[in-house]
């Protein structure tokens, strides 16, 4: 009997903890936004972070994009040829990439490559009292450390997603046109006819911006909130990857439902 009571109490406690953490995270996020002045006034700080989260993610994004596009073309061709409509292969590859796979897979890769690095770095800065030292030097760590990383993530993510999609389409072209021999003209022309700038590409970009905000905000919060110990930081890093992956998929569903409702 007491175990039941205890487990119910446990659920209650965890719910309350979760809610208060959410509140804390929201306050942290708002503080980071409000104190973003430095990130723009001294844009060099943000550029540095774009290097660490954007440029260093390039390799994994480009290679994954290429392979995802190649696989899409292979699989798509198998299915399409049974209906005799190989010429829409370009459409299939392009739409899958710009609407879904580009933003989502790039964001998942970004979360595990850059997000975890951000959490580990900030967590370690906290554990080694670097953030406290900064505060003692009258420098606000949220403005100096958090905000530039946040904006760097928000800027990098859509660029990475676009590169992922472009590489994927290139991969699809290589496999579909060069390797299998789908007609090059119809591959591109069908794609251009069916892929709409606003509905597909712009919405894809909006998605990736939202994912960029979510992943970076989660990564920064987890780092800032990490217990200042080795286990604390490693646990926070894991949570960053798990939480932001879930957030990406959930947000993707919500955004897709809003964006493509009632459109072919």
């Amino acid at each position: 009997m007491s175990t039941i009571v205890r487990s119910i109490a446990g659920i209650g406690r965890r719910t309350l903890e979760g809610i208060s953490r959410m509140g804390y995270a929201t306050r942290f996020f708002i503080a980071a936004l409000m104190r973003s002045g430095t990130a723009f006034r001294r844009f060099g700080l943000t550029i540095r972070e774009i290097y660490f989260s954007g440029v260093l993610s390039l390799i994994i994004i480009l290679v994954s994009g290429l392979f995802v596009g190649m696989v899409l073309a292979l699989q798509g061709y198998e299915t399409l040829q049974t209906y005799g409509s190989e010429e829409v292969l370009g459409v299939l590859v392009a739409l899958s990439l710009v609407r879904e796979l580009g933003p989502v897979v790039a964001a998942l890769l970004f979360a595990s490559r850059a997000g975890s690095a951000i959490t580990a770095e900030i967590g370690l800065m906290k554990a080694t009292e670097q953030l406290a030292a900064m505060e003692m030097m009258a420098v606000d760590p949220v403005a100096r450390v958090v905000a530039p990383r946040f904006w760097a993530g928000v800027i990098s993510m859509p660029l990475l997603a676009a590169l992922f999609s472009a590489m994927g389409i290139l991969g699809g072209y290589l496999v579909g046109v060069v390797l299998i021999g789908v007609d090059e003209g119809s591959f591109w022309s069908q794609m251009q006819a069916k892929v709409d700038f606003e509905e597909d590409i712009l919405n894809g970009v909006i998605k990736s911006v939202v994912f960029g905000i979510a992943v970076t905000a989660i990564a920064l919060f987890e780092g800032y909130d990490a217990p200042p110990t080795a286990e604390g930081v490693s646990g926070a890093t894991t949570r960053t990857v798990v939480t932001s992956s879930l957030a990406i998929l959930a947000l993707d569903f919500v955004l897709t439902a809003f964006m493509f409702r009632g459109i072919s």
């Binding site: 954007g54 392009a94 710009v98 990475l160 999609s165 472009a166 590489m167």
Partner: peptide
């Protein structure tokens, strides 16, 4: 970072012009 941003914007242009039809 410059290379990265130029490449990213290039990819966006590629998507807008070559993949999609901006000529709506």
């Amino acid at each position: 970072v410059g290379i990265f941003v130029v490449a990213g914007i290039g990819a966006l242009m590629f998507l807008a012009l070559k993949v999609g039809s901006m000529n709506t």
